[in-house]
Design a protein around this nucleic acid. Sequence first.
DNA 1: AACACCATTGCAAACGTTTGCATTAAGATC
DNA 2: GATCTTAATGCAAACGTTTGCAATGGTGTT
Lengths: 339, 339
Amino acid sequence: MSKGICLASTQLKLSDLAKLAGVSTSTASRALNDNPLIKKETRERIQALAKEHHFSINAAASRLRMQKTKVIAVIINLEAETKQSVDDPFLLKVVSDINRAVNRQGYELLLSNSHMAGEDWHGYFISGRRADGVIVVGQGKEQAKIELAAKAGTPIVVWGDPKTSANYPIVGSDNFVGGLTATEHLIAKGASKLLFMGDPAHAELGERYRGFCHGVEKADVTAKLVRIDITSEAAYASINTLLRENGLTFDGIFACSDMVALGALKALKERYVSVPNDVKIIGFDDIAMAQISFPALTTIKQDTHAAAQLLVEKLLIQLSGKMCESQEVPSSLLIRQSS
Amino acid sequence: MSKGICLASTQLKLSDLAKLAGVSTSTASRALNDNPLIKKETRERIQALAKEHHFSINAAASRLRMQKTKVIAVIINLEAETKQSVDDPFLLKVVSDINRAVNRQGYELLLSNSHMAGEDWHGYFISGRRADGVIVVGQGKEQAKIELAAKAGTPIVVWGDPKTSANYPIVGSDNFVGGLTATEHLIAKGASKLLFMGDPAHAELGERYRGFCHGVEKADVTAKLVRIDITSEAAYASINTLLRENGLTFDGIFACSDMVALGALKALKERYVSVPNDVKIIGFDDIAMAQISFPALTTIKQDTHAAAQLLVEKLLIQLSGKMCESQEVPSSLLIRQSS
DNA sequence: AACACCATTGCAAACGTTTGCATTAAGATC
DNA sequence: GATCTTAATGCAAACGTTTGCAATGGTGTT
């Protein structure tokens, strides 16, 4: 037999690298971590050697020793009752922004969902040393699980309605103000028979509805709540029914999300109701589609970028042992053609 | 000072649990892993005890010992040149489907992007024991990095164009067939002056364009390539320019993605070009928005669900040491109102 | 009664880091 | 020249699992 060529040579470990450099393992370790205890030139020599040999530290071993993972878990928390899915463009945008913010802080992102993580989030993620902290996207109805995790000492932050009182910090838009602004805008544009489409039982939407009601009260307009699941399909179906059964009894729609708005918009256009002439419509979120729809959708933009940054910062604060509080991030009115 | 109450008692470890159960650590370990070496009733007793005390195994230690992580890394591979962002609804849908498929196999999902992972994917993920394998979403132009990782022995699978020959398996839609089908559909509907919107330099889109050309050749129609970045903004701008400068010189558009199609659609509607009467338009992907647009967008649906399943399966095959090959997943024509 | 066998459990090593402490060498101070 | 200080490095323990092997006790066979 000829001598086999060792293609994928056995994994280099720190002690091997140290041997190569002619130093002890501890020196190598410190050198790679840029510990000033080690002479600068030694450090650089070892770092160069590591690059050359494509060495990388074994994260499992490091985590075991350090008792921390440098990982943040993100849980997409969907409620079982709603048809809102993980595919919801807005949720995914939030996740994507969180991903960036997490990386910027030198952490990695473990993507999870309420199904995979099971009941005991603290046990699974924290005790299980899979992550140092948890970000929950979507307050949902599962607040019991969140509360439990927080009580068990999980560093945790939630995207949701900041007004909700809880034993964990919540970051989210100023939904009340957003709802009010949207309503005032519709009214300013001349709408006087308003519809709110969405489900106020959901915390964030409840606040938007409160803002809506407040705006309605201040003006001389009528208002109606169309309680639907927050999907475009539900909105489409519901507007269709409304038009078929009652005719056009409204001239302004505040949709609780852009997806809902777009579903409604489609139904209106199919029935030749002119937007914005006959009906003005405003959404919430500012997803990518909002500006591509025709007419382009007026909406309340949620600043997910800033929010993601905030979520991560607050989590890091907790990781350093300190407490922190819920916080609202300002939303803004984006006027386009639909109003 | 009163005696403080120990709220979060120090982390329970396996040996503690074993002591509680009156067995050795090894027995406890085997019991939790349902090892039949251990008597059934002992196993159940220990498992119950673990539940009761909210015990969970330390993943870091386990990974160190086992030399495997039960984690799959997903890299969103965006090209620097394009403005296509991580927010692209289609990419996110793919990730979301992969997430589900990964979980179904009992793995966790580490979300990453080409920036965070750096140059040396093998070093970072595999040698670094952060993941057992890698799924790359988006073939991109960064094929060098992928190839390098594969060569280094990284278990890896790529979402992209399966026709590309590579040293790693690629899963993706039958883009040629999809492109051909789309084109034939446009022609069947009476279009005879066709536009292809997209950038054929991108592997997947190149195949779609080849399908397009093939369809065009077989029929008596004219065709033009509109080479644009694959964003709705670019499509919108490009159709606007086209109409302004040349007038309506086409009656059928094959957009390389739904986002592109929707951008084009908006420009057409703004200039009162009737869809589908004056211009028929078909997209690719079938993102959520396709059915909500007005008119609803005819498109080639990519079966991301099946593809995700396949990606994960192929990765697991590699993890078990076997080789596997690229594979196409069938796409399907979804006829809606835009054609 | 001696032996082999099986079912069940325990012992101890190993996985690859990081870090408190000890050690060394060299220069500074008296 | 003896002692102290400082800079640089090495030793060895610990992090919490998993698993090959040894050990135990009981049952069945000859």
